[in-house]
């Protein structure tokens, strides 16, 4: 039973880190394997070594958060940034209020603005159809309206693209700042 503490601990940590690709996971695990070895050399028991490491779930959460933020920084996509935001929520209630809340609100605004872009594009199609078949205006008018709407959609779409990127970058910067402040204490 005593001999199994180390193995149990390392196995649990390995499982908890399963979202991370294996090479990186192995590199991380090296530190914890070495910890048990070094502790044994100092004449400490496996139980004592495990106890001073602390809860593997907390360690895994910290490591995963760092990983998610790094991934988000690399890709800058909404999906990976959102995953990083969700990873912070695991670190405590404070983050639910100060990270997830504002992020969802911001995402809502971005989504609404994208909906405007989509509406402009759909409006252009409707104008063409109305110009061909409808009575509201003739073909020339319909074409003119459609061209105007497409132009507006393209302009606002380009603007929204860079705005979305900006919001994502800002979120990552905030996460990095926040990560430095919260987490990692003995309970």
């Amino acid at each position: 039973m005593n001999m199994r503490v180390r193995e149990q601990y390392l196995n649990q940590l390995w499982q908890l880190l399963s979202p991370v690709p294996e090479p990186l996971r192995k590199e991380w695990m090296y530190d914890y394997e070495e910890h048990f070895r070094a502790a044994a050399e100092q004449g400490r028991s496996e139980e004592a070594a495990a106890a001073e490491l602390g809860d593997p779930r907390i360690i895994a959460r910290e490591l995963l958060l760092g990983y998610r933020v790094e991934q988000a920084e690399k890709s800058g996509k909404v999906g990976s940034v959102s995953r990083a935001v969700f990873a912070t929520v695991g670190m405590g209630f404070v983050n639910l209020v100060f990270v997830l809340g504002p992020y969802l609100a911001l995402l809502g605004v971005v989504l609404a603005l994208w909906a405007v872009v989509a509406a402009l594009a759909i409006g252009a199609v409707v104008a063409v159809i109305e110009g061909l078949n409808g009575e509201a205006f003739n073909r020339v008018q319909g074409t003119f309206i459609a061209m105007t709407l497409i132009g507006l959609a393209m302009l606002s779409g380009a603007g929204m693209k860079s705005m979305t990127r900006g919001v994502m970058q800002m979120t990552i910067r905030y996460l990095k700042f926040n990560g430095r402040i919260i987490g990692g204490s003995k309970r």
Partner: peptide
């Protein structure tokens, strides 16, 4: 090496040794 740093840090501050490695 990691263990040295981790133990030194946690003996002075209230941090779990495990969170020194990250």
């Amino acid at each position: 090496y990691g263990y040295e740093l981790a133990v030194a840090m946690s003996s002075k501050f209230e941090v779990a040794v495990g969170s020194v490695y990250p």
